[in-house]
Amino acid sequence: MAISLVAYIREFARWEWARKFLAARTAPLVIPPYFRNYPELTGKTCTHHLFCMMACPAPGAIDVIRTPEGWQPRIHIGHCIRCGLCVEACPNGVLSSGRILESMFRDNTRLSFSFKIDVDLDKCMGCGNCAVACPVNKLIDAQMSHGGRASTDDLLLKLSDGKCRVLHVEKCTGCKTCEHHCPNEAISVARLLEAVHAPEEVP
């Protein structure tokens, strides 16, 4: 046991090694522009659009929770894969990671969400659950959320000729409330995430 310990020291305590260890000089470590760390809060106000959650490819990695100060994203480190999509997706710059925000600003790029709502007219019973539950509709028309009567055509969804119709898909925020509450699985929301150059005007 003792002999082997000596042999061990002898093997590793060679001068050549010690010199290199103490005298070596390498270039300082630079974080590359593409490096993405866990997202951090920038302190900007979260508007609860949930784009971060929608963009996140890792299940359970990000939540938007209500705190006494208002809505805030919360990152679950163990689940986060540091892809940075949430940082890019956020329309308000609430999150930051590495130099993503910096390079987005420099290159004038961003991630843009759009949504496509499909209604299967064969399955739709016209129950109106989707249109009444829809949080966008709720903001536009209180009568709609209080019993399903459309008092305007500015709505995202409404019932017409016995079926749910999508009137203004551009107002969709992709929350999928309609999809979750459709009893017949007649309505579905597809989220389209694309990178665009220069922020486009919302039509």
């Binding site: 016209g126 129950c127 109106g128 209080h146 019993g147 399903g148």
Partner: peptide, 19 residues
Amino acid sequence: NPIEAHPRHMSRYTTFTDG
């Protein structure tokens, strides 16, 4: 089964409508 027999029952009077 209101969805089949009374489709708007839930959206107009009960589950989904805000009160």
